[in-house]
Design a protein around this nucleic acid. Structure first.
Lengths: 155, 155
DNA sequence: TTATTATTGCAAATGATTTGCGATAATACT
DNA sequence: AGTATTATCGCAAATCATTTGCAATAATAA
């Protein structure tokens, strides 16, 4: 979604320089959970950590695998909550959903050979005039490119 | 997919002006099936007709509903074949696949209120330079816009 | 018409995601 | 801290979309 959904939270305790980029991010999300009345639990912490440390979008199963959670429903429920909070976004490929933390919106390219998922900026991709002209109000979009990445192309 | 996949077949029997735009299209597809060694059967005819007369992309279930076929596997198998032939294309939304005949490539916009699916041209949407610069070879893409259509917006 | 074999239809298997519910633990309150 | 309140978890079972095995059927070739 190009419309920035994440609620920018001014955490007043910005002391100590974050050791890992991720920790600050994770804490921000946990803070948001509290503010929104959600309880901060172990499964939520681990799922958020799994998402924050992931280098690319992950499926629910992959996220479960990155945590000690064996129950799928917990993973799905948590992802659903995070999505409602605008913390993560989702896109589908071949019938399975991929999730990732929303930083700034971007689209995806997936290599049909190695499965690698690349991020690509989408500034240029506002709602097409065709739609706006027809009275549409676009709230989000997602684009997926399929092809072969440079590495795989180089054999 | 922007890359035109449909194999342009020069049907030498272009007599009789098509009464309905669809019939010519259906015949072309049936012809392609024959040429590729597929048998022309009732289920295939009906599925192709369902696709050719559909005003917008349809799910496998919807396509089954538009025919007298009660068996889902037949529908899925046929759609898979048509996809391999480059006759139809597929995109996913909320975990379900939508299919439609390939005319010229376009992307889609789905109204979150009434569910209507609109087509939008995609000429301007080649592979982003970000990707090509990184050595990617893009073979196809799909974009889905979500929002509210003019009709629904007008209450 | 008959033989050959692609296709169908059905049942059952998958795989992803969802839901009901009792057990558990996170916050609120004293 | 101790307890009540109730969100959340974990598990089992339910859905849903899609796939697969296989024997019965029907489209083409001979």
């Amino acid at each position: 979604m190009c419309a920035q959904k994440i609620k920018q939270k001014e955490t007043n305790h910005s002391h100590h320089t974050a050791h890992h980029t991720h920790h600050g991010e994770e804490d921000e999300i946990l803070q948001l959970l509290r503010e929104e009345g959600y309880r901060v639990t172990a499964p939520r912490r681990s799922i958020i950590e799994a998402l924050a440390t992931a280098a690319s979008p992950k499926t629910a199963k992959q996220i479960g695998g990155r945590t000690k959670i064996k129950d799928a429903s917990t993973v799905y429920r948590t992802l659903e909550e995070l999505k409602k909070l605008g913390v993560i976004e989702e896109f589908q490929s071949k019938g399975v959903a991929y999730f990732e933390i929303v930083h700034d919106h971007h689209d995806h390219a997936i290599c049909e050979v190695c499965g690698k998922i690349e991020h690509i900026p989408c500034e240029a991709m506002k709602a097409p005039r065709t739609l706006t002209r027809a009275g549409w109000t676009i709230t989000s979009h997602e684009a997926l490119y399929r092809g072969v990445c440079g590495t795989c192309a180089a054999k």
